[in-house]
Amino acid sequence: MLSLRSIEKSYPLAGGQLPVLKGIDLIIEQGEMVAIMGSSGSGKSTLLNVLGLLDNFDAGSYHLDEVDMSELSERQSARYRSRFLGFVFQSFNLIAFKSALENVALPLFYQKIPRRERQKRALAMLERMGIADRAHHLPSELSGGQKQRVAMARALITTPRVILADEPTGALDSVTSNEVMDVLREVNSTGITVIIVTHEADIAARCDRTIRLKDGRIIEDGNSKVVIEPTAHGYTPDAS
């Protein structure tokens, strides 16, 4: 379970601070599939980064499985990222000089899994993603959809508790986007929590729950089918 209480986060700006998250209270249960929506600058990516321990916060508390994340050292944060969290980025962030197989196997390197075992598991994960035939190709030799599948395989290789996806379909066409969402749904069906930052209504509609942010505050939180409908606040589902 992820629990945020009064989370605040500001970025330094010339002559002051720019508040990005203003008192976020949020609980996400294990096994949920959640979309975080909002316009550009609403703080949705910052929220995801705080959840993923990629960024720190200024105030409030964040508990992951009842462990206070604000108390963690740099090394402990790395351990949590390695054991509990998986990341999928819009720009894939694959290491350019490593093959698909090596990219997928990399998180296991930091869990000190032996090389042979890493490669075996990475290949199995690529098979599950349907791109085992591209295992020895460099990222530059893969299509956008294939790259994202490699990125998802890399996120899943450690069997994390939570997948954090920042605009995972942002760089993909609609067909490939649907394929990626199919994979994330399937992942979620195994009990893994999936949190997706998106500004696409179609993507959010495929999640169980949607949280809408505006100016660093949650303005809506509920069933996706309800939230992504136009509301009295005047927000449109695909606002960006």
Partner: peptide, 16 residues
């Protein structure tokens, strides 16, 4: 630097 960020996201410690 980006690669370092990716590695950290995947669980690498600063020391490693």
């Amino acid at each position: 630097t980006v690669e370092i960020g990716v590695r950290k996201a995947l669980g690498a410690t600063s020391g490693s």
